[in-house]
Simulated assay, not measured.
Amino acid sequence: MSCPSGKMAQPCPVLLVFLGFPLLVNAAWQFPKETNITRVTSTYFPPTVEFAMHTFNQQSKDEYAYRLVRILSSWEEKVDFPTVFSMKLQLGRTICRKFEESIHICPFQYSSDRNNTITCYFTVSTFPWTTAFKLLNQSCLE
């Protein structure tokens, strides 16, 4: 699918989908330099993280959305089928309600009387060729 000719001022939506996703997650996907972390390099890992975040926000009783601050650690489980990823994520509470559309760009909440970050461990199985995911485990520490 290509962009219609004569409309060069407006970006092609399909191109934005492919080019925009890495820009959205780039800042949060930086690993701390002082830790020894197994880095997952699979192309199936970013959608799996997105699924874990979406599921967390849907199940959360908090009215505000959380988004990814940083990936603390991640690894691919040694199983034959399906692909299973485990990850430890630092999540930050945003100023947006969890059913708003632009959660991925919503600013984090900052408060002196409340800790607005959570560390969660997720295990997710994925069938990448069908974009099917299943949350196997989730545990969080405030």
Rank of each mutant, 00 (worst) to 15 (best):
residue 51 F to M: 13
residue 107 P to R: 13
residue 57 N to L: 13
residue 139 S to K: 08
residue 30 Q to C: 07
residue 139 S to I: 05
residue 42 S to D: 15
residue 57 N to G: 06
residue 8 M to Q: 12
residue 39 R to N: 05
residue 110 Y to G: 10
residue 140 C to M: 01
residue 34 E to W: 06
residue 71 I to Y: 12
residue 123 T to Q: 10
residue 55 T to V: 15
residue 33 K to I: 12
residue 73 S to W: 01
residue 47 P to S: 05
residue 83 T to I: 08
residue 36 N to V: 10
residue 141 L to A: 10
residue 74 S to G: 11
residue 136 L to Y: 02
residue 31 F to S: 11
residue 132 A to N: 09
residue 33 K to D: 09
residue 70 R to L: 06
residue 59 Q to H: 13
residue 19 L to N: 15
residue 65 A to K: 10
residue 132 A to H: 09
residue 92 G to S: 05
residue 62 D to V: 14
residue 85 F to H: 09
residue 134 K to E: 13
residue 7 K to Q: 12
residue 127 F to I: 14
residue 33 K to N: 12
residue 85 F to T: 07
residue 17 V to A: 15
residue 24 L to C: 05
residue 55 T to R: 15
residue 44 Y to G: 15
residue 79 V to E: 10
residue 63 E to S: 15
residue 52 A to T: 03
residue 82 P to L: 05
residue 138 Q to K: 15
residue 2 S to T: 14
residue 78 K to S: 11
residue 90 Q to G: 01
residue 80 D to N: 13
residue 110 Y to Q: 14
residue 46 P to F: 07
residue 84 V to S: 05
residue 67 R to K: 11
residue 7 K to G: 09
residue 27 A to I: 05
residue 25 V to N: 03
residue 99 F to T: 04
residue 62 D to F: 09
residue 59 Q to R: 14
residue 136 L to N: 05
residue 114 R to A: 06
residue 129 W to T: 08
residue 138 Q to E: 13
residue 64 Y to F: 11
residue 100 E to H: 10
residue 140 C to E: 00
residue 112 S to K: 10
residue 106 C to H: 02
residue 103 I to D: 02
residue 82 P to N: 10
residue 137 N to D: 07
residue 101 E to T: 06
residue 112 S to R: 08
residue 128 P to A: 11
residue 41 T to D: 15
